[in-house]
């Protein structure tokens, strides 16, 4: 499903060149849950931005569902982001003046999901991640951190993506809620047959993934699990 080959991304800071992602290669099968651990500045978020087609690599290729995303641009790139990828952010990043249902429907709008079915699917997804009817109608400001992250997860699933990229999905949550959210992601990977790549600091949570990689100074070390 996902095949990364000799992927590199450099940043220039004055005369210094920082290799945030350095010759990384790995592949992940459909429905797998993969954790990437590493200390701050190890290149985890940069790797996610490359996988999510939010940035272009200096070299290497990223093949998702048969498409080399390093070579696409414009409309094709937007469609890839909308339909093939689901994003979960550490800070949730929900739109503050839209309620939970509208936040999920927003992703469907960009994924050109059929208009008539959007609301029903948004409600079904929110129910699936554990929000009740009242909570669905609340704006992010009226929801707890855990509930907001559940809405973010529902949003990431909105267009049946092949790949969900989660950047520190439990980073802003207490440990108990973090475990619940991680378990939720794990079960969704199985039920929705969606590949999930989650970046985390938490080794205990990371240990629950099918595969665990460690990123150290841009180099990926395989097979910690």
């Amino acid at each position: 499903m996902l095949k990364v080959d000799k992927l590199s991304r450099e940043f220039k800071s004055g005369d210094t060149v920082v290799k945030a992602v350095n010759d990384v290669s790995f592949s992940v099968g459909e429905g797998k849950f993969v954790s990437i651990i590493g200390r701050s500045g190890s290149g985890k978020s940069t790797l996610l931005t490359l996988l999510g087609a939010l940035d272009k690599p200096n070299s290497g290729s990223i093949e998702v569902d048969g498409i080399d995303i390093a070579k696409i641009s414009g409309k094709e790139l937007n469609e890839y982001r909308a339909k093939k990828i689901g994003f979960i952010f550490q800070g949730y990043n929900l739109i503050p003046n839209l309620n939970a249902i509208e936040n999920v429907m927003l992703a469907m709008e960009f994924g050109k999901y059929p208009t008539r079915s959007r609301k029903d699917r948004a409600k079904a997804l929110l129910m699936q991640v554990g929000l009740n009817d009242t909570e669905m109608l609340r704006r992010p400001g009226k929801l707890s951190g855990g509930q907001q992250q559940r809405v973010a997860i529902a949003r990431s699933l909105a267009n049946n993506p092949k790949l969900i990229l989660a950047d520190e999905p439990t980073g802003n949550l207490d440990s108990q809620t973090g475990k619940v959210i991680f378990d939720l992601l794990h079960s969704l990977a199985k039920s929705e047959k969606t590949t999930i790549i989650a970046v985390t600091h938490d080794l205990e949570i990371a240990g629950k993934a099918d595969e665990v990689y460690k990123l150290d100074d841009g180099k990926l070390k395989k097979g910690l699990k």
Binding site: N78, R81, A82, F87, F89, N93, L106, A107, F110, G111
Partner: peptide
């Protein structure tokens, strides 16, 4: 965020 989830 809008761009990340597919908005042009």
């Amino acid at each position: 965020v809008l761009k990340a989830i597919g908005a042009s």
